[in-house]
């Protein structure tokens, strides 16, 4: 998949990430209506995803970036046995308007805000994370930086062209009587799988 950077971890490991930022990240993500799941392995996501699919009566899934994470690819394969799972970019693009759930990845989280940084240079990554009503995002739980200041210091090193940014919870609006309503243009649910691979 096309990305603005293929070695994010190298930059994150320059002293930006720390486990200590997790509690703040968690608090802020929850406050921003992120549905957060802390899991140890990618497989553990399967039953959760299955439930989400069942509850939403979903049929089509668009899933990206399996090639960077073999275990994630295994999850996609597993889901593919039961559901229609698109992982090829052309098929995703063709079916984008009717996909029910998008699965994508994030590079790191920001403690101060509960945001996740997404590398969306690839068109298909943008489609699966924005068009469906549900977006499931996988992220390495240990990749949390302190504040937006550090987050942008990293971007300054890796962002030379393309498409990236931060996602903080689902799409929302308060334009009518300032009543908070989720899912106006983007997803109404942002489900974050924080995978802690170190333990």
């Amino acid at each position: 998949m096309k990305k603005i950077c293929h070695e994010w971890q190298k930059y994150l490991d320059k002293g930006f990430i720390d486990k200590n930022y997790w509690p703040a990240f968690k608090e802020n993500a929850l406050a921003a209506a992120v549905e957060l799941h802390e899991i140890k392995t990618y497989d553990e996501a399967l039953p959760i995803i299955n439930k989400v699919i069942a509850a939403a009566d979903a049929e089509k899934i668009g899933a990206v970036n399996g090639e960077d994470y073999p275990e994630l690819q295994a999850v996609y394969n597993n889901l593919g046995q039961q559901y229609q799972v698109y992982t090829d970019k052309f098929t995703i693009a063709k079916n984008a308007p009717s996909i029910d759930i998008g699965i994508s990845t994030a590079e790191f989280g920001v403690g101060e805000t509960g945001s996740v940084c997404v590398d969306n240079y690839a068109y298909e990554a943008r489609l699966v994370s924005m068009l469906p009503a549900i977006n499931i995002v996988f992220m390495n739980k240990n990749n949390i930086v302190d504040t937006m200041t550090e987050a942008f210091e990293i971007l300054e090193q890796v962002f030379d062209r393309g498409y990236t940014g931060f996602v903080t919870g689902p799409s929302r609006t308060s334009d009518i009587e300032r009543v908070l309503t989720l899912g106006v243009h983007g997803p109404s649910r942002l489900i974050l799988m924080a995978v802690d691979k170190t333990e």
Partner: peptide
């Protein structure tokens, strides 16, 4: 980041908006 640490907090009382999108140059479409 100097803008983003203040703008959402002041504007809407959020620590961050749902989407901060960064676009640089032509990007692919299919």
């Amino acid at each position: 980041s100097k803008i983003m640490r203040l703008l959402p907090r002041n504007g809407t009382g959020q620590r961050m908006v749902s989407y901060l999108t960064l676009v640089d140059g032509p990007t692919p479409i299919i």
